[in-house]
């Protein structure tokens, strides 16, 4: 028996909106730790890792570890039927082949349940070790989204370079080139407006903007995004989900041979 009651149901709606175009189907895993997912895009160069910790749910019952395969566009369609202020409860029976999403309006005057068929998904699960990154950039998530959107009008790839001068996002395309430099700016009025760069060594990596733009669909989940970079390692783009966990995107760099 699984029963997870999330007071801030909009969080789950936003999570689905941020991953449904990157990943078509995925196994949601539920254990005492929480509700989690790890899935790769169809070309296996990008990965999303989600964790919503059990403590973040108002009620969290998970009698045994369970993995539920879901088609994400279908799940997103169902969650779109929940109001932004609704409480969402996820329910499933052990060994069952369906999951139920229950939506309660804040004043309890409307209760809806949507039952969705589960599917069997064979997916590779990757062990991602904690790594020391050469550079970690924390910046407003909206600023990062704007940069990715602007650069993708010029080119297909972005070179992210971190030096002591700051972080530079560059692209080039048929019509020209673009460079956007953000300098460390820790002395702003609001902490969420700060750009903080922790650099152990300079690093420069190239990524496909198509994926970066897809990751920025998680912008409504967090004011701050953290970008962790190391040579020869996939970049990690992390959005912390208030007091509940995180959504992390990994993307393999483009390499010249």
């Amino acid at each position: 028996m699984l029963e997870l009651r999330l007071l801030q149901g909009s969080l789950l709606k936003k999570v689905l909106e941020s991953i449904k175009d990157l990943v078509t189907e995925a196994n949601f895993d539920c254990s005492a730790t929480g509700f989690s997912l790890q899935a790769m895009d169809s070309s296996h160069v990008a990965l999303v890792a989600l964790l919503l910790r059990s403590e973040g749910f108002e009620h969290f019952r998970c009698d045994r570890n369970i993995s539920m395969g879901m088609k994400l566009v279908n799940m997103a369609m169902m969650l779109k039927c929940a109001g932004n202020d609704d409480i969402i409860t996820i329910k499933a029976d052990d060994g069952g082949d369906t999951v139920t999403f229950m939506f309660e309006s804040p004043n309890q005057d409307k209760i809806a349940d949507f039952e969705m068929k589960l599917m069997n998904i064979d997916s590779e699960h990757l062990g991602i070790p904690e790594a020391e990154y050469q550079a970690i950039v924390r910046m407003p998530s909206s600023e990062f989204a704007r940069i990715c959107k602007d650069l993708s009008t010029i080119g297909d790839t972005v070179i992210i370079s971190v030096t002591k001068e700051g972080v530079k996002f560059s692209t080039k395309g048929d019509i020209g080139t673009a460079n956007i430099v953000c300098r460390q700016n820790a002395t702003v009025d609001k902490p969420e407006d700060a750009i903080i760069i922790e650099m152990k060594e300079p690093v420069s990596l190239t990524f496909a903007l198509r994926y970066m733009n897809s990751f920025t669909k998680a912008t409504p989940l967090a004011n701050i995004v953290t970008i962790s970079l190391s040579s020869e390692l996939p970049v990690v783009v992390e959005y912390k989900i208030a007091e509940m966990g995180y959504i992390r995107f990994y993307l393999a760099p483009k390499i010249e041979e």
Binding site: A208, P234, A252
Partner: peptide, 14 residues
Amino acid sequence: EVFQRVLVTYFECK
């Protein structure tokens, strides 16, 4: 030539 390696070249399968 520019290419992208798949993620299993960086992370092990569990």
